[in-house]
Nucleic acid binder design. Structure first.
Lengths: 111, 111
DNA sequence: CCAATTAATTCTACAATGTAGTATTAATAT
DNA sequence: ATATTAATACTACATTGTAGAATTAATTGG
């Protein structure tokens, strides 16, 4: 079977998880994404993607303990699997290769 | 309207066009992509994507002249529009921001 | 000039990913 | 127990990815 690309949103979600390390769960992932990419991410979009990535084996998850805070459901923590990391690398490399030598905007040479 | 991401394949196609400069048409784009990303790209996948990108205003096209070669239909040349370049930049920046500080593989420090 | 050949694009159909909104669940506090 | 809160799950539809077959348009040889 030919390796497929990751979708772009999928990539972003996985990168957010890597960044959050052991604090990567739905709400925190969503916040980081919204902040990092400067646009809204709907709750549904995120959870759907998390599920799909886990089903494909690119993410793993573990149920969090209940915490002594006001209330609310337990968190489900995510981590990027080895397979997921490989996929990220492949996508990154493919894009980098293609960007090679392309200059879209001229940077100002001096202020 | 919120800006959407480019799909990853869409990005790749646009980058290939930029690279090919004034020789970007279906067949050459496909060859460059196959070579650059190391996997097959079906004819249909490519042309469908080209059409959609043009319809969205991210690409422009122009009909090529018939050329004195064995035979075959005239080429349709593509170029990335200003809007297309902006979209590429946005996607690139978003991904770069997220990759910031993430180290997946340790590079060998010495051989 | 017409049939064969070639180079290229278009068409059709379905799968995977993107996206949003609403509903549900599970925990805590009163 | 009931209200409140934090979080996840569900449902549905739009967009993008993907493949293969069909079609078109050009050239050349006879």
């Amino acid at each position: 079977m030919q390796e497929k690309y990751l979708g772009e949103f999928e990539q972003m979600v996985m990168l957010a998880i890597l960044k959050l390390a052991d604090n990567a769960y739905g709400v925190s992932i969503r916040e980081l994404l919204i902040d990092a990419i400067g646009r809204d991410v709907s709750v549904g979009a995120l959870y759907t993607t998390l599920e799909r990535l886990e089903k494909k084996g690119l993410l793993t998850s573990s149920q969090g303990e209940a915490i002594a805070k006001r209330g609310g459901r337990a968190k489900k923590f995510y981590a990027v699997s080895g397979q997921g990391k490989q996929a990220l690398n492949r996508s990154k490399n493919a894009l980098e290769t293609l960007w090679q030598g392309i200059q879209l905007k001229q940077k100002a040479l001096y202020a």
